[in-house]
Write a protein that binds this DNA or RNA. Structure first.
Lengths: 263, 263
DNA sequence: TTTCGCCATCAACATAGGTTATAGTAGGGT
DNA sequence: ACCCTACTATAACCTATGTTGATGGCGAAA
């Protein structure tokens, strides 16, 4: 159920290579940071030179568990992951969605215990940096420290928008909003957003994301499809018309703080 | 509609006093930071010595608006406030609740524009520190910098728990959960939690907090009351039995990271 | 003391979304 | 080429919460 080899587009799933051979994935992390924070060439080189190992994980495997004390900072370089919490009665809620380039756990640098579960959504490739190494870099390089904080703050801002989504939007708007967000977030590190590829979540996972049931997600997708906002390719959902989606979702990307730098 | 004088328990609502006369409110902020982060006497003194002004604001007044560029770090020393976002169709969602001792806007130190509205819930007394002054302190004193980040992370953790609340708990559990949270958060800076005082929110505001309607909040309060979990004093709601509430809410305080220090 | 306005209360009805259960279908593994 | 399993689809029915609108009472201000 964990750590086999390959099986992602970049076909790069090896183990424990502490080297910097080919592009091992840190580049997309760097691109992500640069999308919201400026870094000197020197800082950029420092990031690319971090000692790290590479790890491949299968869909649904746990990357971090509630209550853990993590000693490691995993970075998602291929595939998707999510943070998730559950109710005692078994209700499951996805509370954050992580895409390629995202760091998965800055929090453990500052706080002792992990307060949620972190799971692979698809097959994922992780770059794993030891926490002390990361802390050293942050302590040495203020611009990187700042970028880390900005990253944390943007995730928090996304969380606030999700609260608005869950609290005050109906199923159709919620789903549309999620698709818009995913599209624009993908554009921060790549040239295409959701256009070319299928939405990476199954209907059950969409339900857990949006506080709905799979049955109702199914109904809602069909409504979106009949609108032309979304297209189906077999089981997959693909972007139909982003402008329709934005309208349905009441979407504005300011909460993503794209290309932001502080005063 | 703003800045008149006094009208809060500490009766301390003046303007622009850059002095450190009587206890002006920074002490409760310090206590809040100490509740999750250790600080040397020296660091503590530095915080208490920050140049600041004091500001009183009436209920419902805006402390910060979406789109603003803030130059100031307001600290809530008496009263309650909340962050709020709205849908174009007029749906209003409270996305964070701030209590005495909380800093209201660390975010503006790192990111250009404010992505939500910050409003006074009750009459409030604010201590206002100029952002450059705060930045200077954070740049000089690593322990304070770390405390600020921990504070940001705890707010984010609370946001995740609220997502679980909105997405996967019914009205009764949601309300119970909120009351539990408020109780324990108040205990971080004071000796009594919610025991002695009324819940500071009106039913409409509870509705905006919990993604419900005022009518349904009313129904739910009555159910809680018949359980004995909550008591009424006139219009006010007061804690009845915290253990019942915890049970109804499926509450555990680990997400609040009380008394936490990182490795 | 009276007035006035804001809140809380309550009831009757409406609906978005939940539940359960039964097919159907794609696609990987053999 | 086949099977198996996991996902999707759909229908019928159910319920938590929303909506609207009428009533009543507390508390601030005059």
């Amino acid at each position: 159920m964990s750590s086999s080899v390959d099986r992602t587009n970049n076909g790069q799933g090896n183990q424990r290579m502490t080297a910097k051979s080919a592009p091992p994935g840190l580049d997309i992390f760097l691109r992500k940071l640069l999308s919201h924070s400026p870094l000197t060439d020197d800082d950029q080189a420092a990031i690319m030179a971090m000692p790290h190992s590479v790890r491949h994980m299968e869909p649904n495997s746990y990357i971090l568990r509630e209550g853990d004390r993590s000693g490691v900072c995993p970075i998602l370089c291929a595939g998707f992951a999510y943070r998730q919490k559950s109710t005692q009665e078994g209700g499951r809620q996805i509370v954050a969605l992580k895409i390629p380039g995202d760091a998965l756990d800055f929090q453990s640098m500052y706080v002792r215990t992990v307060d949620h579960n972190l799971q692979a959504l698809t097959a994922v490739d992780l770059v794993i940096v030891a926490l002390p190494d990361f802390e050293k870099m942050v302590a040495t390089r203020p611009a990187i420290a700042r970028a880390v904080i900005v990253d944390i703050l943007i995730e928090a801002s996304i969380g606030r928008e999700w609260l608005l989504n869950l609290g005050r939007r109906n199923a159709l708007s919620r789903l549309s909003h999620l698709l818009c967000e995913l599209h624009y977030r993908l554009l921060d590190t790549r040239s295409e957003g959701l256009d070319a590829r299928d939405v990476p979540m199954k209907q059950e996972q969409l339900a857990d994301l949006l506080g709905l049931t799979p049955v109702h997600i199914n109904r809602t997708i069909k409504k979106l499809e009949s609108n032309g906002a979304v297209a189906r390719h077999g089981r997959g959902i693909r972007l139909g018309d982003i402008e329709s989606l934005r309208r349905l979702a009441d979407f504005s990307d300011t909460y993503l703080h794209r290309n932001n730098r502080a005063g």
